[in-house]
Amino acid sequence: MSHINLNQIDNMQFDVLREIGNIGAGNATTALSQMINSKIDMKVPKVDLLEFKELSDIVGGAENIVVGILFTLEGQIDGMMMFMMDLSAARHLVNLLMGTTTDSQTTDFSDMELSALNEIGNIIAGAYLSSLSSLTNMLITSSVPYMSIDMSGAILSVPAIEFGKIGDKALLIETEFGDDIKAVNGYFILIPTLESYGAILSSLGL
């Protein structure tokens, strides 16, 4: 099995990981786009090796309030997957799905709306993971969605702590998506464990 050393990742490995983000997020974006019947684009995925103190800056600063939906991954790939978006994006999605017209500044969600958001997270993460699973031919199972609406730094502390157990940096594959009017933008973040990076790269012949 390939081993990945966080301090010496070569360009080839970066390219492969970026491609994983591309394929996974591509499927997830399509699923989201079909769900709300509107065009959604994604940016080129970024594979970032970040120190913990830089981690929370990736989604607009540590105090930026976001909806984070987290899945823990098991099977042949261990780790976490996170779907993050800001509050107005979450409100917009809920409105589209439930046919409501609540003002996008309204940040209180009813139980029903929270449940809808969880389900959105479920479908999107499912699309991401199933494409990753067929690409690598590995079994990946995910937990139920766990949701938190809070400061991005606080939410990202959870995967960061898992990485903290093995090193001083976090390697993550993040893909930003959005529509033309910037109403639904957010991030998919895939955070496999270090061993799982090795497994992913091996499965693709590296």
Partner: peptide, 11 residues
């Protein structure tokens, strides 16, 4: 001076 840390979660 003052000192701060932003967005403490489980930390």
């Amino acid at each position: 001076d003052a000192i701060t840390t932003l967005g403490l979660g489980s930390c």
